[in-house]
Design a protein around this nucleic acid. Sequence first.
DNA 1: AATGATTCTTAGAAAAACTAAATTATGAGG
DNA 2: CCTCATAATTTAGTTTTTCTAAGAATCATT
Lengths: 304, 304
Amino acid sequence: MTRKSLPSLRALQTFEIFGRTNSVSETARELNVTSGAVSQQLKILEEQTGFPLIMRRGRGVYLRPDAKTYHQFLSEGFDALHHAQSYLERIAQNTNLSISALPSLLSKWLYPILGDFQQFHPNVSIRLDSTHQEPDRHLLTTTFRLTYGSAGSRFPFYRELYTDTIFPVCSPSFAEAAPEVWTAEGLLHLPLLRTDWGPAYRSLPDWEDWLAFCGVSDPAPKEVGVFSLSSLALEAAIEGKGVALAQTSFVERDLQMGKLVRLSESEMKLPHPYFVCWGEGALKDQTAKSFLDWVLSAGRGITA
Amino acid sequence: MTRKSLPSLRALQTFEIFGRTNSVSETARELNVTSGAVSQQLKILEEQTGFPLIMRRGRGVYLRPDAKTYHQFLSEGFDALHHAQSYLERIAQNTNLSISALPSLLSKWLYPILGDFQQFHPNVSIRLDSTHQEPDRHLLTTTFRLTYGSAGSRFPFYRELYTDTIFPVCSPSFAEAAPEVWTAEGLLHLPLLRTDWGPAYRSLPDWEDWLAFCGVSDPAPKEVGVFSLSSLALEAAIEGKGVALAQTSFVERDLQMGKLVRLSESEMKLPHPYFVCWGEGALKDQTAKSFLDWVLSAGRGITA
DNA sequence: AATGATTCTTAGAAAAACTAAATTATGAGG
DNA sequence: CCTCATAATTTAGTTTTTCTAAGAATCATT
């Protein structure tokens, strides 16, 4: 990821302005320096790039034909830097929220309901970060982190959102084609979509746990795919590729819309709850406080 | 066009790397400086922007939530600078031609036939610049300039390309609807598309000149539009908006393709020829020499 | 409590950028 | 052709910025 080193940035900047103005003295004026300084910077750039960028002729100085495209690219770069700068000035007064969450939790639970919050806080710009990677432990880099289980308790402050429950689901057409989906034993010989939670979330129940929970004695299911995110496993189930273990909070909409059917009345509790976490000074901000209240009440909606 | 001043570029660069690595020492490594230097630059950026970008906590340093977007924009900027740099390294060995020409001459004559040249010089990359503005008088900034009349003789070297002739044209459907287009007198009451050549090219003939040339005594034509480029007037004629004065070299294709019809057998010579111009060292390059030969022979094709 | 890894803080050193003034080149105007 | 005005360059010396080095502080881990 390390990039090559650039020529002197000051020289690049000088060259960029010179390319626009085609005049040393005008460039000097824009940079608030003397024309001698500009002259030197241009020479430095030619030395450092090893490329003759400029033609000098008496009292005139001109970009070489080849250098014009180079100059255009540089201009775009400096434009972007200026843009970044004006962005910074804009956000200086705005209220902002930055929320990091586990990918599936974000895409399947928080994001679909986030509109409800924004409706009441239309001027708040929210930055979402979808990552498995837990942020710094003090939560300085993000206002809130939504995560699962023990990961939550490692942050300075945290509160339980809800404890999810799981049950098997599949697409309606799949259920019609394979009536044995309705019994736990029947599942054994069907394609089961498995979620690989990764080393940090080993404790999350998988098909073996579900089958044991249902009293199946020798759980050796047929396996078709390992998905790194539960949202991907659910997509596959919707497409009729097999049966997935779904979390209540993640499939509410898909069940309502008839894209998935629930295959069992009983359900299994996850061993840990989801948490919302924040850092030391986070709640000083009124908007952050509102968000916390809102997200907690949304979490209570799941349990109820 | 003058832009606002940026914070210290070195500080921006340091911050950009820090935002990617999230580590002072790693940033120091990438910049080949000590970590103390990085620490200072980050502080300088915060001072200059007046915005708290970074949270410090013991041995850890973190981007503030708000600063992440700022950092992304900066990253794009530096990406562009790196891109410019790699472009420069790439073109270092290539043969390049840079050609500046009057807009209509470029789009209506040179560009359509340029493929013939490139066919025989496939490795030559050509940069085209379409502008009314004449380049520096020594032609250091562009290899060739194609221009009209006296403008050509102000460059160190120049040769005549061709002297164009003009005649009226309109779309076939327009001619059908208004049979009076075929006589000069008939034109007087039709919508005539006029080209405004600007102060530098006053000598170019307009409708008044054409009507006088045809012997019409009191030329006071009805006028519908002034177009700053002759190529725009031709577009309007093709769309059936009226009658335009066309140059032979600009409408050859449109006549062949039946988009326009020529309304008079006679034609009027332009007072001056087009020129191809170049600067002192230009012909040292073999490719430039080939281009000159080619463009001159293409120009002879018009006169013949 | 010791250890190791990381960052921060200084003072002073090194490098980069700048100024001022002399110098060169050229174009414009008489 | 000569002179004047304009622009850019060069050089020496100064100012500013950036860097290093070494010690202090913080905090997770052992």
